[in-house]
Simulated scan of single mutants.
Amino acid sequence: MSRVPSIGLILIFKSTTCVLMPKDRFPIWTLAIVSGGVKAVLNPLVLVVFSWDFWQAFRHTCARADAPLAVGVYYESLCPDCKNFVVDQLNVTVSRVPDLVNVTLVPWGKANVSSDDGSVHCQHGPEECWANRLHGCVAAAIDDASVRTRAVACLMAAQKTLRADGPACLQEPPLTFAPTMTLDGSQGTAEQQKQLLDDLLGVVCSTWQQRTGQTPAGCQQ
């Protein structure tokens, strides 16, 4: 195989499939193969690696196109502007288009760590430091993105009376039936609860298939 195809191989292997799109990678391969002549075109390694590389690039490009947008929110628990954003913007967005966003909550804001004793100082005082920790625990403990965002928005709405009214934001809905199941942190509707009760394996398999497009061996009848 000539030097040009070899250089083409190096370029492909050193690039990531998510950076170069198939339409950008195709000319690289075309140049490498054409410059290398018939031997390069007929070389099994070139053909195999080209086919695999192009398929991987296409597959990853499609996956990236469908991936949710990563939204990071760096806020303070007692900040009025943060409250307005979380309640009026973030909660509404996650509620309406939960599949389009992947939200990361960072309740830190303008807090800083003292170089003298390592203590944390928050912009709105010690009470905000406590509230930031509360928000951090909530963000870490609740898996379902919609439930998590709704709980944080509730805490932000109760900003001025957080110690008194905050616990109500974190209460689980009362059980109307036992057992009650959750899937990905959500109880779902009454009909979904019935489906979980009657056929848990079926619900898990169908949900997994919808999410990944794959059918695990244990789901095959």
Rank of each mutant, 00 (worst) to 15 (best):
S2G: 10
V4L: 15
G8W: 04
L9P: 00
L11H: 04
K14Q: 15
K14R: 15
T16L: 09
T16V: 07
V19T: 15
L20R: 08
L20K: 06
P22R: 00
K23D: 15
K23L: 09
W29Y: 05
I33G: 01
V38N: 07
A40H: 07
A40P: 03
L42I: 03
N43F: 04
N43G: 02
L47T: 08
L47N: 12
W55L: 07
C62P: 00
R64F: 00
R64Q: 04
A70G: 07
V73Q: 07
V73Y: 15
Y75S: 04
S77Y: 06
L78N: 06
C79K: 06
C79I: 08
V92L: 10
S95R: 13
R96L: 12
L100H: 13
T104N: 12
V106R: 11
N112C: 11
V113F: 12
S115L: 09
G118V: 06
Q123W: 00
Q123N: 08
Q123A: 08
N132P: 11
R133P: 00
H135I: 06
C137P: 02
C137Y: 06
C137I: 10
A140T: 11
A141C: 12
S146E: 14
S146L: 15
R148D: 06
T149V: 15
V152E: 11
V152C: 12
L155G: 03
M156V: 00
A157M: 09
A157S: 14
A158E: 12
L162A: 03
A164E: 07
D165V: 05
C169H: 04
P173T: 05
P174I: 04
L175I: 11
G188T: 01
T189V: 14
Q192S: 08
Q193G: 04
K194M: 06
K194C: 09
Q195F: 02
L196T: 07
D198S: 15
V203L: 14
V204N: 03
V204R: 04
V204T: 10
T207A: 14
W208D: 11
Q209H: 07
R211A: 11
R211E: 10
T212Y: 02
T212C: 03
G213A: 02
G213L: 01
T215V: 05
G218W: 14
G218R: 10
Q220P: 05
Q221N: 10
Q221L: 06
